[in-house]
Design a protein around this nucleic acid. Structure first.
Length: 1135
RNA sequence: GAGCGGUUAGCUCAGCUGGCUAGAGCAUCUGGUUUACACCCAGGAGGUCACUGGUUCGAGCCCAGUACCGCUCACCA
């Protein structure tokens, strides 16, 4: 074995070996309990960042641990098409300013190309982390299968009345040229001007000077007091009384005519000059106006502010569009027409100033909405969009009651169906849900699932219809009897009977046509059925419906290809068509079948029909292998193939918009398992178990998965949500490329130190929901640990190669494991039992950091520092090896690569991930105590040696009593570098560890002894005072009190051995209490308490060597009485 | 404005339902070529658990208040 672990040469081959061996794949037919985590799909065009790395580390640990504890685990990978983000990247990549510079089809094909190129990159990067993902089930939010799921649920929601189209106030991202959901808007605080300007007689205030120009109502509060004031030159001014009195300028220029409530102003009409010319205004009073804010009056921008829009609806005001979808002013803005909003605002301010309309500007902290993806301005705009109604009732098939989507989301957490780790995020979740408004799901971008809605010339809405085609399998043929594949055989007598059954099953349907293949068994079945329909139903023969071709195989094998035993789903042996050919054929047949008018009955063959069912919704060939394996179709059995048929008719056009990315992401836990098909995967692995992700997408994603999961499947999609925090640098700042010294790239770091070290550094010291501080130093620390493990392995290897394992059982650490013999063996075996249990418990509780910490310290501080050292004295190689293999299993979930590598290096059999997580039972409390004692003794001697700066090689003479067991003595001699013999020297150093007394042949170190004595003295005093407290001895648990007594006795004993004298008892305490009580005029119990506190104070002051000044004791003269207080050692220290 | 977290060693953080002398990693200091490992070994120093009160026999932990930091939410023009 090499001296240092070479992660570069090890990791990729190990991962490749796992993949090749198929150990990462889940078995949907397993009897084991399932454990499923859907991988939060990274953006397909993204690069692995630390957030991904943290996510992968946590999930991999959970998955591997569960797998090793006997679960059938499925960690399902995939990528996200990330609509807006990807579109931006592709535009940039193509050097385009706007997607309109290209045709929609061309742009989409560019996106697809780009996505598929980048896909391999992110997948490769994910594998670098060692993730135990089942790549055979990899999904993509924008593939055909997911598109089917999206359309299916859209249709279902629409039919339930939960998706509606509405002309509402939406968030328009000028940059992305699309609408955004409420939570996709980020708010930024800007310092801006607050304009106070004249609008006729009214003084109004606003930040958005550019929008306040059209014919509009002026809103006032009905109950607030307004003043009408007049100036010498006849100008009128209406503002709130409060505002008027606060502005000296107004008071100077204007004189109050009357004071009226806002209600009285209502209905007032006037014409006023604005920056864009003269306009008409009228006054409306409404309580939503805050009279204390600004001037207490405002005009409203009906089409550009959500609040104003509400008012516009309430009073039926005109909706006036003042800003267009490019973020520029419309012609209503007069001189500002065509200007972007911010420029228009500036210009409007200038014009008002020129016209003398501006009263004043003042600074104002304004919150402006920004697009979370394109970092551009978001404008509230009016636009027709599709919404999901979260508060609309619909019948819930699970409970049989009416419910709303919002209620389903609330019930998820409130009802304990979904628990969030850490728990405090449940409150955050509720806060969000409670404020949740309808979700705007349409987007004006091209890259995404197109909204499955069509419009006719009259703007009527059409959705796809759910249609179905009935398939029936032909009856038994002679081929089935002869057990051959291929060839063309007739039905048996039994097969003919089957055809009659088919007729019975479908006779009530309005079958208009029977379609069969051009193989005898199919044609004959069709003929019988048709005959029973009294030949009313015509038959069509479609050769493309023939069973998979096996002509070449048949030729190779002779006339017919005889099958041995039950059918194996091995397509190489079944057919000479490739999976791609099968897919293409199935999809083309399906396309034709869909066009069939009326109800058709297809007489099909086993395999091609399976292919039709699968490939009608999916392009995934690997998925078909699995689908076919779980495909059960008895002869004569009917199956309906359901599909969505797009509406047809003249002049229908599909909605141009696409769906919010999060719409398809919200289906992820079940769309990836085949939903809406009732697949074996879905049955076995849904609901999933844990959804682990960053808390920043709790709302975007997690809440919506809960909503759709429960709505679509009737079950909550997972029982636990584990939220990790954002990875930051050590100062808690977000990693940023502008600070290269603290910015860490996970891929570079994996290159440098290996994936295991990166994993540990992201997991240890990180608690759920909190930031994960990361630094190069921290990572280096875990690299050192990985290296430590490697070297421990090297030691084990050396030991066992000198003494090869005796039995083959020992090779894999089988059931008949080597037994612990020595004291150290029994100690470490007991510790392993404790630690393994501890680690398992912690992982169960999602305390991954603590579990990692436990392993780290067990390996380093106990196994390496003590057990390996002890085993150099008294070796038991077989057991050492066994123990180390157990440690590898224990550590495997955290550090999969190094452990797998060592597992191989040590010649253990199989793959580590397929071993059981250690659950040892060996426990020997006596050895644990004894070894702990030895450690203490050794440490104590080492400390003295270090203080004396002795050469580590120099053996010193030591006398020890009482005498130890030979085994213990040998350990101490070797580990502490001492030799036991009788000490005669008078000035030997005395040490005392528990019951053991040690004499070292070294000059006495007086200061050291003194220091120790003082420590003991303060300890004794503290213990005594605790015991002197009647409350403690009476109320505290008995075992605790006993423990304290025991400690006191031990400390006193120790002190005695060190030659210190025990302190005198507090004989005179009553006296003192009385004295204090009298002089301070307090009750004796208070005096007693005061004395205790005082005592504590003195003891602390003494032990800390502080000079203290005593005051506040009233008339009590401490100085005078102190000679009686012998128990205070501190007296000389006091002043 | 509301809600939620945090404040423990120089730095980053653990500390479970209150109970031994409050722990870890990194950094620091001392001494070390002991045949697994200098990516190491041995040892040391370093803390008024933010502050003020309260509950309790006992508080880092529970309660109230204060200060500071962070996060999230919110339509006040």
């Amino acid at each position: 074995m090499q001296k240092n672990y070479d992660h570069l040469a090890s990791e990729d081959p190990i991962y490749a070996a796992w993949e090749a061996a198929g150990v990462l794949e889940a078995d949907e037919n397993s009897d084991k309990k399932s454990y499923t985590i859907p991988l939060p799909p990274p953006n397909v065009t993204g690069q692995l960042h630390l957030g991904h790395a943290a996510m992968l580390a946590v999930e991999d640990i959970l998955i591997r641990h569960k797998k090793m504890t006997g679960h059938e685990v499925l960690w399902l990978p995939g990528t996200d098409h990330a609509a807006i983000a990807t579109e931006n990247v592709v535009l940039k990549h193509l050097g385009l300013k706007s997607r309109e510079d290209m045709s929609r089809a061309d742009f989409l094909s560019e996106c697809r190309k780009f996505a598929s190129e980048k896909h391999d990159r992110i997948v490769h990067q994910i594998k670098k982390m060692g993730a135990h993902l089942d790549w055979s089930r990899e999904a993509y939010t924008f593939d055909r299968e997911r598109n089917f799921a999206v359309n299916w649920i859209f249709k279902k929601l629409y039919d339930d009345g939960l998706i509606t189209r509405g002309h509402r106030m939406i968030n328009w991202s000028v940059g992305a040229q699309s609408v955004l959901a409420d939570d996709e808007v980020e708010w930024q605080e800007n310092n801006e001007d607050f304009f106070e300007f004249w609008c006729g007689p009214f003084l109004l205030g606003t930040v958005r000077a550019e929008t306040k120009c059209a014919d509009s109502p002026v809103m006032v509060h009905p109950k607030a007091k307004y003043v009408r004031a007049r100036s010498a030159d006849g100008r009128e001014c209406i503002v709130t009384e409060k505002y008027f009195t606060e502005h000296t300028q107004l008071r100077k220029d204007f004189e109050i005519q009357e004071t009226v409530p806002g209600k009285k102003l209502e209905g007032m009409k006037f014409e006023a000059e604005t920056y864009a010319g003269k306009r008409k205004f009228w006054v409306v009073a409404d309580e939503v106006i805050d009279p204390a804010f600004g001037t207490g009056a405002m005009t409203i921008s009906t089409a550009h502010s959500p609040d104003d829009f509400v008012l516009a609806q309430k009073y039926d005001f005109d909706l006036v569009q003042k800003i267009d979808f490019k973020g520029k002013m419309t012609q209503i803005a007069g001189p500002c027409e065509g200007l972007p909003v911010l420029e228009a605002r500036k210009r409007a301010g200038e014009i008002m100033e020129e016209k003398g309309l501006l009263f004043q500007r003042r600074p104002y902290a304004n919150r402006v909405p920004k697009c979370y993806r394109s970092d551009t301005v978001v404008e509230p705009m009016l636009s027709p969009q599709w919404f999901i109604s979260v508060e609309k009732e619909f019948p819930d098939p699970v409970s049989g009651k009416k419910t709303t989507l919002k209620k389903l989301m609330q019930e998820a957490v409130r009802g304990g169906h979904v628990q969030i780790v850490p728990k405090r995020f449940e409150k955050v979740y509720f806060q969000w849900i409670d404020n949740l408004r309808d979700w705007c799901i349409s987007r004006q971008i091209w890259w995404g699932h197109r909204i499955p809605v069509w419009y006719d010339a009259d703007e009527n809405v059409h959705l796809p219809e759910v249609k179905s085609i009935t398939f029936a399998r032909h009856g038994e043929s002679e081929a089935n009897v002869k057990n051959v594949i291929g060839g063309d055989f007739s039905l048996t007598e039994k097969g003919k009977k089957t055809a009659e059954q088919i007729f019975k099953a479908v006779k009530d349907q309005n079958i208009s046509k029977i379609i069969c293949s051009d193989l005898k068994r199919s044609k004959e079945t069709a003929a019988i059925v048709s005959e029973l329909f009294a030949n009313d139903v015509q038959i069509e023969e479609w050769p493309e419906l023939n069973e998979f071709s096996s002509s070449e195989l048949a030729q190779k094998a002779g006339k017919n290809f005889r099958r041995e035993g039950p059918l194996q789903i091995n397509f190489d042996q079944l057919t000479d068509e490739s999976l791609d050919q099968i897919r293409d054929r199935a999809q083309s047949v399906f396309a034709t079948l869909q066009e069939e008018a009326g109800e058709v009955l297809v007489i099909g063959h086993q395999n091609i029909t399976a292919a039709l069912f699968h490939f009608s919704r999916s392009d995934d060939t690997e998925g078909f292998v699995r689908f076919r394996k779980n495909w059960n179709w008895g002869r004569g059995e009917c199956k309906d193939l359901e599909f969505l048929q797009s509406p047809r008719g003249k002049n229908l056009r599909q909605d141009e918009d696409t769906l919010d990315t999060w719409f398809s992401s919200a289906l992820w836990p079940f769309s990836t398992l085949g939903w809406p098909n009732q697949t074996r995967d879905f049955e076995k692995f849904y609901p999933t178990d844990v959804l682990e992700t960053g808390h920043d997408i709790l709302f975007f994603w997690v809440a919506r998965m809960i909503m759709f999961g429960r709505y679509a499947t009737g079950e909550y999609p997972f029982h636990t949500v584990y939220l990790h925090g954002m990875v930051t640098d050590e100062q808690g700042r977000k990693m940023s490329k502008s600070r290269p010294e603290t910015c860490i790239d996970p891929l570079e770091t994996i290159e440098e130190v290996g994936a295991d070290a990166v994993r540990l550094s992201l997991v240890i010291g990180a608690t759920p929901g909190n930031p994960i501080p990361l630094s190069k130093e921290k990572i280096a620390g875990y690299r050192n640990f990985v290296n430590k493990l490697w070297n421990a392995g090297r030691f084990v290897q050396m030991q066992t190669s000198q003494n090869p394992p005796q039995s083959p059982l020992e090779k894999g650490g089988g059931t008949a494991s080597p037994q612990p013999t020595s004291l150290a063996d029994r100690w470490i075996a007991s510790r392993l039992t404790t630690v393994a249990k501890d680690v398992a418990t912690k992982l169960q509780k999602y305390q991954i950091s603590a579990a990692g910490d436990a392993i780290y310290h067990f390996v380093w501080d106990e196994f390496c520092d003590w057990y390996i050292e002890a085993s150099k004295i008294n070796s038991n190689p077989a057991f050492l090896r066994h123990l180390f293999l157990e440690i590898l299993k224990l550590a495997h979930p955290l550090v999969p690569f190094i452990t797998e590598k060592l597992w191989k290096e040590l010649g253990a059999e199989g793959v580590l991930i397929e071993q059981a997580f250690p659950e040892p039972t060996f426990q020997d409390a006596e050895s644990v105590d004894e070894f702990a004692h030895i450690r203490e003794v050794v440490t104590e001697i080492r400390r003295v040696r270090a203080e004396k700066k002795l050469n580590p090689r120099e053996k010193i003479s030591v006398q020890i009593s009482p005498k130890l067991e030979a085994e213990s003595a040998a350990l101490i001699e070797s580990l502490a570098g001492v030799k036991f013999e009788k000490i005669t020297a008078a000035d030997a150093t005395k040490l005392s560890v528990g019951k053991t007394e040690i004499l070292l042949h070294l000059p006495v170190d007086a200061t050291r002894i003194e220091k120790e004595k003082k420590e003991l003295a303060s300890q004794i005093a503290a213990l005594k005072s605790r015991l002197a407290n009647p409350g403690y001895t009476e109320k505290a648990p008995k075992n605790l009190v006993d423990q304290t007594r025991k400690e006191l006795a031990e400390a006193e004993e120790k002190l005695k051995k060190l030659g210190g004298k025990a302190f005198e008892e507090k004989k005179d305490e009553t006296w003192l209490v009385q004295e204090i009580s009298e002089k301070a005029k307090i009750s004796s119990s208070d005096a007693k308490k005061a004395l205790q506190e005082f005592e504590q104070f003195i003891i602390r002051a003494y032990s800390e060597k502080k000079r203290v000044k005593i005051s506040g004791l009233g008339e009590f003269d401490f100085e005078e009485k102190r000679k009686k207080m012998e128990f205070f050692m501190a007296e000389e220290e006091l002043s």
